[in-house]
Write a protein that binds this DNA or RNA. Structure first.
Lengths: 251, 251
DNA sequence: CGCTGCATTGAAATATCTCAATCAATGTGG
DNA sequence: CCACATTGATTGAGATATTTCAATGCAGCG
């Protein structure tokens, strides 16, 4: 049941079987996307949202000269454009990084789900709030950290998120971002990303091979390099959902 | 009726009198806050959310050394921490810039509103999605623009948002941000902010006097300096709410 | 009058970018 | 199997943007 990863690690009580059922049956079809393929284009009208079953998706804004700025990375268990349900057009584009598998959920079905299950409705809202919390941390990363810190911080975030859904083995980072992608996420040039990675490697923190194969050698050092504090991810730590279960819309 | 500014300029159909009534009656009390006073501290447990009636609030993250990174600026008509309703603890702090007036809305009342009016519920969700869209543009601003562009972009955004709620006269910018604040928002040092403002003044774009008194002399030039495209604000332009009215949760 | 908070300036240090070249791995067509 | 193109990684050197530090200016205010 591929929807099991939805908000996994973020909730005090996991989704009920009934809710998982509803979610999964809202799916229209499952699509496999080739690497580096655009799934949703900025500005186009949307009738569906997409839940990522497998693989990685990159969300980005483009400037006038076509330069990309990544604004988010999505992994299995994430909705990549749930806000498109309410906004109807995205202000940014979504593209696959690797070969990805997504579940297409028509907005009509989402509508049904929301009215049918207030609890699911709240969880969907919550999931967009998590996006916003991550955005804020990205702002912090770009505003306050240097190149090396930005890379370390990005990787640290992704490690934590991979852990939530059980996709990190402690060594091999399963998201094949290229140096170019790190550069586009961190607001630096690819050349400078390369130099920063070299430094990180020299410090014994990580190793990045061609093709985006990244190994995390010293996670503690990686996090301390950028003073990483993952509480904004609202996992089972300090800042958690807590009483979210109380917040019934129609309780 | 101070809630009239809520989402003003963003919706195809304005809130009904009944909805405005519900919103306003959810308010527990109105608080006046002195300048530079913290309203909500990162991490503390929340029982209320705050709607800004008058003045300006700054949302910020702090690093280990106490350096601030602004992640948002709120003006009249904004909820400053609506997401605190669902998250219970904020991942960032909220502080007044000037003397501000806020309406305190207990979460219990929000809960009632949500169950009582699906339409209001959707609007509240939408308002948090607008925050996220702005966050994304802030990421872009920090990642892709230089100091001058970042300042120009920030001011451009605020001008548009002030327009939505009828608070910009075309010349005098009513948000008394200091150079220090621009620096904290744009990820630059105050010294560099100062130099960037001088350049902007030399170009005849704007003038910033001591105490945050800013005059916009050439708005077109200001926006073209940073290729500003305000569609992410989801106003009455290209990217708009459109069929949002269809999206009834319990339609 | 003398704080105090903010703005402004200069000069040197540092971070990052730009441009241009090279390298290494991979895949393709002949 | 080779020649070649392609893609991403790496390096060097010089240019530019931004920071840092330290000093000065300036206005409101008790």
């Amino acid at each position: 049941m591929f929807v099991r990863k939805f908000l996994l690690g973020r909730l005090r009580h996991e989704l009920t079987e009934d809710e998982l059922e509803r979610l999964e049956s809202a799916v229209n079809r499952i699509i496999t996307i080739e690497p580096r393929t655009t799934l949703v284009d900025r500005g186009t009208r949307l009738e569906n949202s997409y839940y990522l079953i497998e693989g990685t998706m990159l969300r980005h804004l483009d400037d006038k000269r076509g330069e990309r700025q990544l604004v988010g990375v999505n992994i299995a268990g994430d909705f990549v454009d749930l806000h498109g349900y309410a906004m109807k057009r995205l202000d940014h584009s979504v593209q696959s990084l690797d070969r990805a598998k997504v579940a297409e959920v028509p907005h009509i079905r989402i509508k049904e789900m929301l009215s049918g299950s207030p609890h699911l409705a709240r969880l969907m809202w919550f999931s967009t709030l998590l996006d916003a919390a991550m955005h804020r941390e990205w702002i912090f990363r770009l505003g306050r950290l240097n190149a090396e810190g930005r890379i370390a911080h990005l990787i640290s975030e992704l490690i934590e998120r991979l852990r939530f859904v059980g996709l990190f083995d402690g060594l091999n980072f399963p998201i094949p971002l290229l140096q170019r992608d790190y550069a586009e996420a961190c607001g630096i040039t690819p050349v400078h990303a390369n130099r920063s990675f070299r430094t990180l490697k020299e410090r014994g923190v990580l190793e990045l091979d061609s093709g985006g194969k990244l190994r995390i050698l010293d996670e503690a050092e990686l996090k301390s390099l950028c003073d990483f504090d993952g509480s904004y991810l609202y996992g089972q730590g300090e800042l958690q959902l807590d009483n979210f279960e109380d917040l019934a819309v129609n309780a």
